[in-house]
């Protein structure tokens, strides 16, 4: 059995979610407990009572993405445990290899996001236009997307602006666990799409996951400006400041965007 650090490195490389708890005070500073999202557990904290308490918190903290020191009461003693959650890498799936997508992929790369661009139109989805995308797929988005591992760490951005491509892709998106779903289009385009989705049997709650019109209201007009407003919205949502909330300090895109 290899060491805990080594197992953590392996987990990160294999894109597993991982929680590492390190005891920093108490009888065994440096003692570690590792919990992976596939259920693998390794290591031990001391005493056993501390181990059990941290183990009980592990499931909840595994997907938090946080790094924090927590104090545990063990008998008369307070023991500090540093706990860090390692999330799998961020992914962005862009449906529609349009001009704005080129800039959006550029921004996403700055956030260490693994980027995938999908478009059925061969003319658009070329390596000349997207030399920087990690993956480029020519084909129907709804056929390709189910193979893309659309988990909580995935942002799905619909830029195709054509119901023929987008409606089936949106159904795949809504049936996934993607953390962010946004779609380009005016308020009326968005409302029409939502009606079609409703007719296909999706609930209001499911449809409410869609950010549309996509992006924050930066007043932008050009493709890079719009790409920036989309990226900004994704950051806001990921940081718990959904622009659609009434208390949110940031505002969603205007209807005319």
């Amino acid at each position: 059995m290899s060491g805990i650090h080594e197992q953590l490195l392996n987990a990160i490389e294999q894109e597993h979610g991982a929680l590492l708890a390190t005891q920093i005070t108490g009888e065994r500073p440096g003692a570690k407990l590792l919990v992976l999202d596939d259920g693998h557990v390794a290591g031990e904290l001391f005493p056993a009572e501390l181990h059990d308490q941290v183990r009980a918190d592990a499931g909840r903290l595994l997907n938090s993405g946080e790094a924090t020191t927590r104090s545990y009461q063990v008998g008369d003693e307070q023991i500090d445990v540093y706990i860090e959650s390692h999330l799998p890498p961020r992914r962005m799936v862009v449906v529609g290899a349009v001009h704005t997508a080129i800039h959006l992929v550029t921004f996403a790369k700055e956030f260490d996001c693994h980027t995938t661009v999908v478009d059925a139109r061969e003319m658009f989805a070329t390596r000349e236009r997207f030399p920087h995308a990690d993956e480029l797929h020519v084909g129907w988005p709804d056929e390709i997307m189910p193979d893309l591992n659309l988990g909580p760490q995935t942002d799905i951005v619909m830029l195709a602006h054509d119901p023929k491509f987008e409606d089936p892709a949106m159904e795949v998106a809504l049936n996934s666990r993607a953390g962010y779903i946004g779609a380009m289009g005016s308020k009326s385009t968005s409302a029409d799409r939502n009606e079609r989705l409703k007719a296909r049997g999706f609930s209001d709650e499911q449809i409410a996951r869609i950010h549309g019109p996509i992006g924050l209201n930066l007043g932008g007009k050009t493709p890079p400006e719009i790409a920036l407003s989309i990226m900004a919205e994704i950051v806001a949502v990921r940081r718990g400041k959904d622009p659609r909330g009434s208390q949110s300090p940031v505002k969603p895109a205007k209807a005319d965007q």
Binding site: G3, I4, H5, G30, K32, Y82
Partner: peptide, 10 residues
């Protein structure tokens, strides 16, 4: 606060 430890197999 910085925790400093040997990077070793346990």
């Amino acid at each position: 606060d910085v925790f400093i430890e040997p990077f070793e197999d346990q």
